[in-house]
Amino acid sequence: MSAVAEYTIAVLLLVGGFFTLVGAIGLARLPDFFTRLHGPTKATTLGVGAVMLSSVVFFSSRGEGVGVVEILITVFLFLTAPVSANILAKAAMHIGVGTTGQTRGKPWDQ
């Protein structure tokens, strides 16, 4: 395995782990549900995407072919993350989950 591939894999792994962790920290410490929604939809999705990419580089640099399934999982996660966030936000608005005092504007009730 070439040194370039090794560095690429290591960097991608660390970036992926960092964003996954940041997404979870956001989920744990942000003040209300709607702000918590931001961490998992963006940071965690990108983190897992980076981990997948490192797996693709790892196995293709060992000459085992390009991991199409990893790429499919990544595409699937990027397609479904906004949908999950949207439908969860709708459910939260329907239930009437509270927001922090600093939030400007109001969710609709329709």
Partner: peptide, 25 residues
């Protein structure tokens, strides 16, 4: 934009102060 978005959100999450969030139509 997704990459830059994740960096932006990471900075916001790791910063100490409360986010000023808003609902926008």
């Amino acid at each position: 934009d997704i990459v830059s978005a994740s960096v932006t959100v990471s900075v916001l999450i790791l910063r100490a102060r409360e986010p000023r969030s808003a609902f926008i139509s």
